[in-house]
Write a protein that binds this DNA or RNA. Structure first.
Lengths: 128, 128
DNA sequence: AGCGTTTTGACAATCATTCTCATTCTGCTG
DNA sequence: CAGCAGAATGAGAATGATTGTCAAAACGCT
């Protein structure tokens, strides 16, 4: 079950690329960036690497309004994102309040194994 | 600019189909259902109708983990969803707590025009 | 009924993502 | 160090949802 992870040049290339941006990036963009910087990495590999990273919880994934998956290297632990819809600046936020609320609501309706997604969008100060 | 909306048979067919399920349904499924029940509606039309309904705020849209768009006719007003990941049963939930929290967090970081998405997934009592 | 516009529908075109599979690495092992 | 089995890669095909195209059909109005 434990997928044997074998470190490779292209995997670290993908991780470095991810680390160099602070904003959410799509697999396609990431692939383009890598090509430009001279790294030869196949598109399929970018996808594969990103999904294993995501599965392992090493990166955060969310979907744009158009359904495209975007990835971001984040601090560990459970948290949410406050994203500027103009410049894309992202702030990580955390709050026991929400966690408690979702758990309570779920319990109240007899749901277990609860998980949730929460993203906040707005216009940041500098873009206003 | 104000798109003149002209009522048609197929549009009401789509709306009826949406109204007959209480769970989130994809455009593809909706189209299949319509075909089965004898309604002749083109796939493109289903998509078009759904997006205008969504734009108008008459239906709620969210994305499955795989990025597929799913639609649901909902009560009006701002609310969130508690979805059973096994049977798909959906419960609408509402909570000033979260609304206040997101607004506060956003304000704290200088963000304005705040919007947010929040969905809760879990396993409901009967599926446990 | 007649007309200008909007909608429809069959199908082609996009686009992101996944699959296929032969080839290339990697980490051992002897 | 050479050899091996299994994992990873990459090029391109395949998939699947969604959108665009455009001629034909449906609407609302006169």
């Amino acid at each position: 079950m434990t997928t044997t992870r074998r470190p490779t040049r292209q995997q670290s290339a993908v991780m470095d690329a991810l680390g160099s941006t602070r904003d959410f990036t799509s697999a396609q963009d990431l692939h383009a960036q890598l090509r430009e910087s001279g790294e030869k990495v196949g598109l399929a590999t970018v996808y594969r690497t990103l999904s294993s990273l995501a599965d392992a919880g090493d990166v955060d994934v969310l979907r744009t309004g158009e359904g495209e998956a975007v990835y971001r290297k984040c601090s560990t632990g459970h948290h949410h994102h406050l994203v500027c819809r103009a410049c894309g600046r992202t702030v990580e936020v955390e709050g026991p309040t929400v966690e408690r609320w979702t758990d309570a609501v779920a319990a109240e309706h007899g749901f277990s194994d609860v998980a949730h997604t929460l993203e906040i969008f707005g216009t940041c100060g500098s873009c206003h």
